[in-house]
Nucleic acid binder design. Structure first.
Length: 570
RNA sequence: GUGCUUGUAGCUCAGCUGGAUAGAGCAACGGACUUCUAAUCCGUUGGCCGGAGGUUCGAAUCCUCUCAAGCACGCCA
C-alpha cells in the first residue's frame, strides 16, 4: 500500500506549485495559470532522482526564458520535511531534484512491513471490473491464440486486482448458434463413418476435422453402441452434442487449470436465449429504430456503428447471429450485473467487431467507453524454422496442452515458460513462438534468469540462517550502511514496483511486469557479484539481509501476479 | 479498394502518454569461479527510430502524405 515514489512525486508537485505561487505573489513571475505539474524520473541518472519540466511549460505564458523561471522557482522552494537534498536547474530549463537515501531506506522498511502486500495500490478503489478472455469455441482443444489470450487475460486480471479493482474473470461459452450446429454435423458424420465405414457419409468440408471429434464418437459408441443410426437427424445431432459438449468444456477447463488460469464465471451463450434477454435486446434495438428489415433478415443499421454497411442481427431463417448474442451479452454484463468496466480480450482478427460492438452499446444506452477491447496479435508457431499450422480444422494443431507438455522438460514447469513468454511482448506486437527455443534450457530463456535469482536468494537466506542470522526486525537495522552503487540501484528498482503496477494496470500491459522483474533480477545478480553478505561485519550483514529479503519479496510478488512459480531451489 | 495494427542495433523487443546524449536481451568479441548457486557477473563493438514534410522551446512519440508487412471487410464466430 505504500508507494514511496508516488508520494515523492506528489510532494514535489505540491512544493513546486507553491513555489510558483510564491514567485507570482512576490512579483518575480507574472500572473499565470499553473498547468498540471508533471514529475518524472529522468532516464539519465546524472539528472537527479526526479525532475520536472514546469519551467518550459510556463515559458510561453510567462514570456521569460525557461532557465530564468527555474531559477526563480528553485529560490522559492520550501524543502523542509522532504527527502530533497539538492535542486538544480539543468539543460533547457529542467529542475532536477537530488534526494538523500532515506527514501530508499523507507522503501525497504515498507517492503519488510507489507511483505506480500507490497506493490498493491488503490487505483481501482474497489471498482467492479470484468475481464473476459479465452472464450474459445468449445468445439475442440485450445490453440495458440487461446494460449496467448489466456496468459494475457489472466495477468491483466491479476494486475487489476493488485491495483485495487474488484475483478471477475469470465469465460463466455459459445454453446449456441452456428458453430454448435456445425459441431453436431461433424460429430454425426464421424459417428456414421465409425459404424458404417469412411464412405458411408461425406465429411463436410467446413466441419471440424480434429481428431478429438473422432475420439468423442469412439467413446460414445463404446458406451451406447449404434442405437442412434436410425434416429432422426436433428435429434441425433442434439444427443451427440449433448454428449460431447460438456466433455469439451471440461477439457478446456482442465487445460486452463494446468495453465494456472481459473475463471470465476463460465457464462453460457445459450442462457441468453433461454432467459429471453436476447429477444429483449433485439426488441430494444428495433424500438430505437436502429434496425432495418430487408431480404428477409433483420439488420443493424450501419449508421449507428459509424459504418456504411449494415450488419445482420437475425438471419432470414430466424436464427440470431453471434453479433446479436454478443450485444445481449454485453447488455447483461453492464445492466444486469452492473460492472463498471469491462475488458474483452479478442484476437486481432476480430478488430472489425470493436466499432460495431461499441456502436450497438451506445444504442442500448451504455457508455461505450466503459468497454475496453484488448486486441492481441495472433501467434505464429515455429518448429524447425518453419511455420507450424495452427488451424483447429486441419487436425494438425498444437494445442495448449501439447505446448505445456512440450515445455515441461527437465523438471521445468511448462506453464511458467509459456506464461512468461506470452507476456514478454506488448499485446499488440506479433508473437513468433519458437518451440525449439522455448524447449531449450539455456540462458536465452529469461524465465530461468528470474527464477534463478529467486532461488539464489533463498539459498543465501538458508545459509545465513545456518550461521545464526534470521531476517532482522527492520527498525533495528542500520540501513545507512547500504550505500554501494549496486545496492542503491537495486533499491531504486524495488521502489518502482507500485508504479509499475499502476502503469501496467492503466495500459493493460502485463508485459511491463515481465520486463520489470527481469530488471530486478539483473540488478540483484549485479549486487550479488559486487557485494557479499556472508562474512561481512555484523551490522552490514543485517542490512544486506534486509535488502536481499526485500528483493525476494518483490520478485515473488511479481511472479505471483504472473502466476509463475518462484522456486526456492534450482 | 476501405479500415485496423505494426515498421527502432545483425536478431527479438523496450522507450513510462512530447523531454535532456534513443535503451535492454540475444548474437559477436575480450575478461571474472581456492570465497553466499558461473542458469551468474564485468567490459567492447553495433542506430538515417521505414521515408518525406509539418506542428513547437523540444518529435521515435502528435498531424499529413508515402513505402512495406500482417489482419479484417460473410445471413462465420
Amino acid at each position: 500500500m505504500t508507494n514511496v515514489i508516488q508520494n515523492i512525486e506528489n510532494q514535489i508537485e505540491k512544493i513546486v506549485g507553491e513555489a510558483v505561487g510564491k514567485s507570482v505573489a512576490q512579483g518575480e513571475l507574472p500572473e499565470l495559470e499553473i498547468p498540471q505539474i508533471t514529475v518524472e524520473i529522468p532516464r539519465d541518472k546524472g539528472f537527479g532522482d526526479f525532475s520536472t519540466n514546469i519551467a518550459m511549460q510556463l515559458a510561453k505564458s510567462a514570456r521569460k526564458a525557461p532557465r530564468f523561471i527555474s531559477d526563480v522557482i528553485i529560490k522559492n522552494l520550501d524543502l523542509n520535511d522532504t527527502y530533497i537534498e539538492k535542486v538544480e536547474c539543468a539543460g533547457a530549463g529542467f529542475i532536477n531534484f537530488y534526494l538523500n537515501n532515506n527514501w530508499l531506506y523507507d522503501t525497504l522498511k515498507a517492503i519488510q512491513l507489507e511483505g506480500q502486500e507490497y506493490g498493491k495500490i488503490e487505483l481501482g478503489n474497489g471498482r467492479k471490473v470484468m475481464v473476459e478472455f479465452v472464450s474459445a469455441n468449445p468445439t475442440g482443444p485450445l490453440h495458440m491464440g487461446n494460449a496467448r489470450g489466456g496468459a494475457l487475460g489472466d495477468c491483466i486480471a491479476n494486475v487489476l486486482t493488485a491495483a485495487g479493482y474488484d475483478v471477475t474473470k469470465e469465460f463466455y461459452v459459445n454453446d449456441a448458434g452456428n458453430q454448435i450446429e456445425k459441431f453436431g454435423i461433424s460429430l454425426e458424420a464421424r459417428y456414421i463413418q465409425l459404424l458404417k465405414g469412411e464412405d458411408a457419409i461425406q465429411f463436410p468440408e467446413d466441419g471440424y476435422h480434429g481428431e478429438d471429434i473422432i475420439n468423442h464418437m469412439k467413446e460414445y459408441i463404446a458406451a451406447y453402441g449404434d442405437k442412434l443410426l436410425n434416429t432422426e437427424e436433428k435429434e441425433r445431432r442434439r444427443i451427440l452434442v449433448e454428449f460431447a459438449l460438456p466433455r469439451n468444456i471440461e477439457n478446456v477447463k482442465s487445460a486452463l487449470q494446468s495453465y494456472g488460469v481459473n475463471h470465476d464465471v463460465w457464462f453460457s451463450e445459450q442462457s441468453l436465449y433461454d432467459s429471453g434477454e436476447l429477444d429483449e435486446t433485439i426488441q430494444i434495438l428495433r424500438d430505437k429504430g436502429a434496425t432495418v428489415e430487408k431480404e428477409g433478415a433483420l439488420w443493424m443499421k450501419g449508421s449507428v456503428m459509424g459504418s456504411d454497411k449494415d450488419e445482420v442481427l437475425v438471419r432470414n431463417n430466424g436464427i440470431p447471429t453471434y453479433f446479436a448474442a454478443d450485444i445481449a451479452y454485453h447488455r447483461n454484463k453492464f445492466l444486469k450485473r452492473n460492472f463498471d468496466w469491462v475488458i474483452d480480450l479478442w484476437g486481432a482478427d476480430h478488430h472489425g467487431h470493436v466499432a460495431r460492438m461499441k456502436g450497438a452499446m451506445a444504442e442500448i444506452g451504455i457508455d461505450p467507453d466503459k468497454l475496453d477491447v484488448v486486441l492481441f496479435q495472433l501467434v505464429r508457431l515455429y518448429r524447425n524454422g518453419e511455420i507450424a499450422r495452427m488451424s483447429k480444422r486441419t487436425g494438425r494443431t498444437i494445442s495448449l496442452t501439447d505446448l505445456l507438455e512440450e515445455l515441461s522438460v527437465n523438471g521445468n514447469d511448462g506453464k511458467d515458460v509459456a506464461r512468461f513468454f506470452f507476456n514478454m511482448k506488448a499485446s499488440g506486437s506479433h508473437l513468433d513462438f519458437d518451440l525449439d527455443l522455448a524447449v531449450k534450457q539455456s540462458n536465452e530463456n529469461p524465465v530461468f534468469y528470474v527464477q534463478y535469482a529467486h532461488a539464489r536468494i533463498c539459498s543465501m537466506l538458508r545459509l545465513m540462517e545456518d550461521e545464526g542470522y534470521k531476517v532482522p526486525e527492520v527498525n533495528t537495522v542500520n540501513m545507512v550502511l547500504l550505500d554501494k552503487k549496486e545496492e542503491i540501484e537495486l533499491i531504486k528498482k524495488l521502489a518502482e514496483f507500485p508504479q509499475e503496477i499502476k502503469i501496467s494496470a492503466q495500459s493493460l500491459e502485463p508485459s511491463r511486469l515481465t520486463r520489470y522483474v527481469l530488471d530486478v533480477a539483473g540488478l540483484f545478480h549485479s549486487f550479488y557479484n559486487a557485494c557479499r553478505v556472508k562474512g561481512e561485519e555484523n551490522e552490514l550483514v543485517k542490512a544486506r539481509i534486509i535488502l536481499v529479503d526485500s528483493t525476494r519479496t518483490v520478485i515473488r510478488n511479481v511472479l505471483n501476479i504472473l502466476s509463475i512459480s518462484a522456486p526456492e531451489k534450482m
